[in-house]
Write a protein that binds this DNA or RNA. Structure first.
Length: 461
RNA sequence: GGAGACUUCGCCUAGUCUGGUCUAUGGCGCCGCACUGCUAAUGCGGUUGGGGUCUUAAAGCCCCUCCCGGGUUCGAAUCCCGGAGUCUCCGCCA
């Protein structure tokens, strides 16, 4: 693993700045070439520019779109030239065969030159396409209409559930988990280094209770259960929109152990989406609902915040992810359903939380719209994200080439994808400890988990 | 890790030895039409995916696509080289 130390730029690749293993199938002017709809950029550049300006500096948007427009024109003109030359050579080969059959002496005009010319044009095209793809893949998704520009400060709280519990003397989750013997931070560091911990004893049971209870609830809601590989090919990272931007935020295998480029998944969203790469989904089966449990591996920048102690931000945490592939017109309803489903979990646990609609700059670049579910942490007086539910529109589907066939028609279209954590336990676990702590130092176990944890109350041992 | 077989348009499959009417065969599925109280069955037709071009749009036309990349050739699903994957057998290891 080359991810443990400072990010060596050379590790990005084969030395030329490209990333190992991508694109998976060589140069491609086809279905994968666009992340945003090139057609839309050509036809309604203004709309694209306006939407992008919510996330990027307008001058930068203009520059990027100018360059993309130019590359797009070059690309198409090269294709026209190449096609014409190929057509000429194909006709010649057919004439040759016909002449031979007729017994006449076939004629060929400068085969070497023709081949060379096509090869030359093709290498120009490769060059243009790879530049176009680079520029395109740097563009974020177009934010939805109701998503406002700006960063964190522009996020809007749109819903609040419950209220902060009245606790006389608040103890924080690190103190509580230590006192109750739930997490062994020191031995975790001894094993994995800084940023790792071990759930121990009842703590492990509580953690596992959360995961298995989530699984049960998702099954009941009609999601298909997936346990995917944790090590994924780089192409899957591209499809999900994590690469190239977040390439350095995940752990990579070195070139010896993984010549094609593999990384440890930072979220199982990447795996669920990647599982359906290049497929045309059966329209009747949409929306296709799936969920996956995996640990999530993230490098996270070094350094610590007082409100991110304990399990709140580590290099490995457990998360169950729900995901839907839908028809475009099903996306709104799916987003609502997923939000309600994720929030239903937090509510059943009895935790106070709020829902925020993220501003364009604070949401993940692949998403049109993101809503965070944030749970109350009494020790810091802040809300911490336990779930992020997002609608990607067709952005991820384009990158991953996941389509459906228009009913009755022959055309294929890109599906919409939505994903949401349901939930990340590493934030939920501390919230449970803090919100349900009792004056005597014990912690009440949420009712829905009691059977699985084997007790109603966590007490110092 | 070793040896062999294999990878064709959603799925199955013909074609590969012997390069050219392969501009890819047939079946299943799917779509449309016909017939029939309904369904089923039957008949006829359509159905790889992508890019370019033209167009209000559709149709049309052109190019690419027989696992991927390269080579030979006037011409490659077919021949050669490299890679990926699947299966069978052997070895090794939880």
């Amino acid at each position: 693993m080359d991810g443990g130390t400072a990010p060596p730029p050379a590790a990005r690749a084969g030395g030329d700045g490209s990333i190992r293993g991508f694109p998976p199938d060589g140069p491609d002017g086809g279905v994968r070439s666009s992340m945003l709809d090139m057609e839309l950029i050509r036809k309604d550049r203004e709309a694209v520019a306006t939407a992008l300006a919510k996330r990027l500096d307008p001058a930068e948007v203009t520059r990027a779109l100018d360059e993309i427009g130019q590359l797009d024109r070059e690309r198409r003109s090269l294709i026209t030239e190449i096609d014409a030359e190929r057509q000429r050579r194909k006709a010649e080969a057919r004439a040759y065969a016909a002449a031979k059959r007729a017994g006449t002496e076939p004629e060929v005009s400068a085969p070497e030159a023709g081949r060379k010319q096509v090869a030359e044009l093709e290498s120009q095209l490769d060059e243009v396409q790879s530049r176009l793809r680079d520029r395109m893949s740097e563009l974020p998704n177009l934010p939805a209409e109701d998503v406002v520009p700006g960063g964190k400060e522009a996020n809007r709280v749109v819903k609040v559930f419950g209220e902060p519990p009245a606790i006389e003397k608040v103890r924080d989750h690190v103190e509580l988990s230590r006192a109750l013997g739930l997490v062994d931070y020191e031995r975790g560091v001894k094993l994995g280094g800084s940023g790792f911990w071990i759930y121990t004893g009842t703590g492990a049971r509580l953690e596992w209770a959360l995961v298995t209870w989530f699984v049960e609830r998702h099954l009941a809601a009609g999601y298909e259960f997936l346990l995917p590989p944790h090590l994924l090919l780089n192409s899957a990272g591209y499809a999900a929109g994590q690469f190239p931007k977040f390439y350095d935020d995940v752990y990579h295998l070195d070139a010896d152990s993984a010549p094609r480029g593999q990384f440890l998944l930072p979220t199982s969203e990447t795996a669920i989406l990647g599982a359906y790469q290049d497929e045309i989904l059966e329209t009747a089966k949409l929306p296709l609902k799936a969920f996956a449990y995996t640990p999530c591996y993230r490098r996270e920048s070094a350094g610590s915040h007082s409100d991110e102690r304990g399990t709140v931000r580590g290099h490995q945490f457990n998360k169950v992810e729900i995901f839907q592939f839908t028809l475009p017109e099903q996306a709104d309803a799916a987003l609502e359903e997923m939000l309600a489903h994720a929030e239903g979990l937090v509510e059943a646990l009895g935790l106070h939380y709020r829902r925020s609609l993220l501003a364009a700059g604070d949401a993940s670049a692949s998403m049109k719209k993101t809503l965070d579910i944030e749970v109350w942490m009494p020790s810091t007086g802040k809300y911490k994200e336990v779930s992020s539910v997002s609608w990607a529109g067709d952005y991820q589907a384009r990158r991953a080439a996941i389509r459906y066939r228009e009913p009755g028609g022959k055309q294929t279209r890109f599906v919409h994808t939505l994903n949401g954590s349901a939930l990340a336990t590493s934030r939920l676990f501390p919230a449970i400890l803090e919100q349900f702590q009792q004056p005597d130092g014990s912690v009440l176990v949420p009712e829905v988990l009691r059977d699985r944890v084997g007790t109603d109350r966590l007490t110092p041992r």
